[in-house]
Design a protein around this nucleic acid. Structure first.
Lengths: 190, 190, 190, 190
DNA sequence: GATGAATGAGACTTCATTCAT
DNA sequence: CATGAATGAAGTCTCATTCAT
């Protein structure tokens, strides 16, 4: 990615996250990227394509971070621990991207369907870990579709927390706690 | 709420959920409500105000359903069970509303901040249940802000599931499973 | 004029003067008159008709005040003195009406042409006084069309003054001075 | 001012003058300027800003014409003579602009207040001439605020005359006469 | 590669007017 | 006489996109 395109990319994430995709204008993105409006169209076919590119890249980074770290581990519980930590850390580092993602995957039109498909690829990684954990008897028998969705829901949870507690948001603390509840449950057992 | 305003209200939910808030036009809403465009403006000041009204009403219904059922119970675990069930059922019945809500609460502009504030009112109900459970020793010591956010994240989880499995989405089954994992955790204990 | 129509009439003058004819809405007028919007249409055919009625009435009052006072005088200079004083006083009492009038008589469309025609009727009164004064050798030979127009221009002058000096606008002082300059000129003569 | 913006400027004066500011539409202006509607908004933020720009420019030209000619003269009476002549000539050349101006300066809303402020800058030039004339004993002691307002009122007078006598409007004749009456008064002196 | 003036479809909104009550 | 809910034509403005330079 050459430097102009990268500047546009970053400007777009920041702009979309601040104002949302629809309220962001090509003018804003161009200004924020310090290029002329026409330049956006030299690097991207359309505003939609910027969004698509952005979501592709973001999910690619997330998937890579997860895959990389997970491959070195050989215990499903450790892997899930890692997933939770990475998600929390990712949101800490790339909150703007998550904001854009979460604003765009609901709804039933084509673009949103496409984005969700990309998301499912990520969820499959989690599903696989869960299946592995079940067969290893480290995780209880459960519906892996539901559980992987719950893992995704955690991203929403963490973003809600972050937005609620802007000043002191500690991704490590969050991850630790969520992990504990997820593995052990919250019910008190005598 | 007189009948015209109600027709507009319903048309708006359906339209926003189908096309998203920004891609929905006042023309579409008017047509779907079978009124003239001007009539929308007789009952609402602006498109934004329709959205606001819609989110207010939706969250009010959700809060009422939860409060009503919860007040009859006197056990925090039972209450959380109920919350999960209601959330799942609510999403089954009013998926369109949830779609609109989840598309609008991320981001940092004024309107979204306002919507999130309304959401926090709902989360406070859950926080209270958790505090109650902790003091009753039915729930383990935990950070109630995090846990209540996780409970909200479940709404996202369930919507992801519903969108993924359009044909056979069974709110009872989902609720049962999520509840089990939430209370007992997913780690296998010998 | 029954009481409802009169309330509308007064509300219209005040509203038109505050916001101008085009920015005033029937809603505003109705609210200011404390009647329902439909009631306006019971008493007037249209918004334009309200304006027309208002200008007709206003000019009628001005013409009457002038005619009444002038008929008792038998000296053209005294008559002009009276015209100036009445104009100044009228503007003091009915500034809102003058504001509306002065905003509506320029331009070339039909309505404005019509309003100007009504105004010319007033100017003719002044022309006649001037002609009378010339034949009586009280006033120098001059073009009475020009001079009567100048007398009208004074209304603009006085409104400008009033708007500039909101706090202390003294119609008597203004009238005295303008009269002096008009009769004697402003050039210093040895 | 580049050529597109200038075309819009001229189209706007002509359109506003024909139909008045409020009845003129952006469509009309665009068509008259031979540009697309969007182009108007590329060069001006809003319809109001076109009006503002137009009034600024018009008054600037008037002030410049007056200042330029006046600076060469060193006699207050000659200066006033020049003012009257320029006003009359300006109205002959740029009647459309004067029409727009006179339709917009009455009333009490913000925009009109702003326009009047700009007008006062012009009146101050006249005030200064009058003060000068008084100190030179060329002009009688008088209230310069009133007299400068009267000079402005003449613009209204002349426009009334022009509108009344469309076919034969001779700015030189008008100026000569008004000047005579203004300096010497209209009262016959033995 | 980059620019930015120009475009025009289409969005939101306003508001005078109507009409059944 | 009076009301006010409903209308829809028409206006202002936005903005993604194009294209000649």
């Amino acid at each position: 990615m050459n430097s102009t395109k990268e500047r546009i990319f970053k400007a777009a994430i920041s702009t979309f996250s601040k104002s949302g995709f629809y309220k962001s204008t090509m003018d804003e993105i161009a200004e924020s990227a310090n290029v002329a409006k026409g330049t956006l169209y030299y690097h991207f076919k359309s505003k939609n394509e910027i969004l698509e590119f952005l979501i592709d890249e973001g999910l690619k980074v997330l998937k890579n971070e997860v895959s990389e770290k997970i491959d070195k581990l050989n215990n499903a519980v450790e892997k899930l621990r890692t997933v939770i930590f990475i998600q929390s850390d990712f949101l800490y580092k790339y909150g703007d991207f998550i904001t854009v993602l979460l604003s765009q995957i609901w709804g039933n039109n084509k673009v949103q369907d496409k984005f969700r498909e990309k998301l499912y690829d990520y969820l499959k990684i989690i599903e696989d870990i869960i299946k592995e954990g079940i067969s290893e008897k480290l995780i209880v028998e459960c519906d892996e579709k539901i559980v992987s969705s719950v893992f995704f829901g955690m991203i929403s949870s963490i973003l809600v927390l972050k937005l609620r507690n802007k000043e002191n948001f500690d991704p490590g603390y969050i991850a630790d706690n969520i992990l504990k509840y997820t593995l052990n449950g919250i019910q008190y057992v005598k």
